[in-house]
């Protein structure tokens, strides 16, 4: 397990400032989708019972229908788990030195990338649509100069506040280490 107090390649004075996941509405959507999937067999059984066809008493369709129902429930459980894992493992960590982007893509693919704060050139926050504006969640896009490196914090809580905090950290980091964008690296301890 990863600890926020002990990040991979952590520097001596590095501290975790922000830890973010997507907004809870993404998780709620996943649960809602699973709930709708669960309603399908209930509706079918209800409709069949209402029409007088009790399949569970049938010598063939009783046992076979039970196996189909069980298979369906197992698949829904696995889909729900996959969605929760995808939500839970997608995260962004901002320290006073760098930004770490952790992205879980499906069950067997995972991408971890990082960007030093003094390389950041542009930070954009974005809230689009009624729901995002009403619930104050949205995206933050962080870009470096030259290279096409871009971090996209998707559907995070309070993107404007996050943008301001990262901008402050970038300014402080550039004071300590120089501007990574302009190539003015300053040795630690220099002012």
């Amino acid at each position: 397990m990863m600890s926020l107090a002990n990040l991979p390649n952590q520097e001596r004075n590095e501290q975790t400032i922000l830890f973010m996941r997507r907004y809870w509405i993404d998780l709620a959507t996943a649960f809602l989708f699973s709930a709708v999937l669960l309603c399908v067999p209930v509706a079918i059984i209800f409709a069949l019972t209402k029409s007088g066809a009790n399949i569970f008493d049938n010598a063939f369709w009783g046992p076979v229908g039970t196996l189909i129902l069980s298979t369906y429930l197992l698949v829904v459980a696995v889909i729900t788990m996959a969605q929760i894992s995808d939500y839970y493992l997608d995260s962004w960590i901002v320290t006073n030195e760098r930004i770490i982007n952790i992205e879980q893509m499906g069950l067997f693919s995972r991408k971890i990338s990082e960007m030093r704060l003094n390389q950041v050139q542009d930070i954009t926050s974005e809230m689009k649509g009624f729901l995002e504006t009403f619930l104050t969640y949205g995206d933050v896009i962080i870009q470096t100069a030259g290279e096409k490196v871009e971090f996209h914090f998707k559907n995070i809580d309070n993107p404007d506040e996050v943008k301001l905090r990262i901008a402050r950290l970038v300014t402080e980091c550039k004071k300590r280490h120089g501007d990574g964008v302009l190539g003015q690296e300053v040795q630690q301890g220099d002012t």
Binding site: M1, M2, S3, L4, F19, A77, V78, M81, A82, I84, S85, Y88, L89, S91, I102, Q104, L107, F108, R110
Partner: peptide, 15 residues
């Protein structure tokens, strides 16, 4: 699939 989900959370999740 269930095992891999548990494994991923246990290995890569935050403490």
């Amino acid at each position: 699939f269930m095992f891999f989900n548990v494994y991923h959370i246990a290995k890569f999740g935050i403490e």
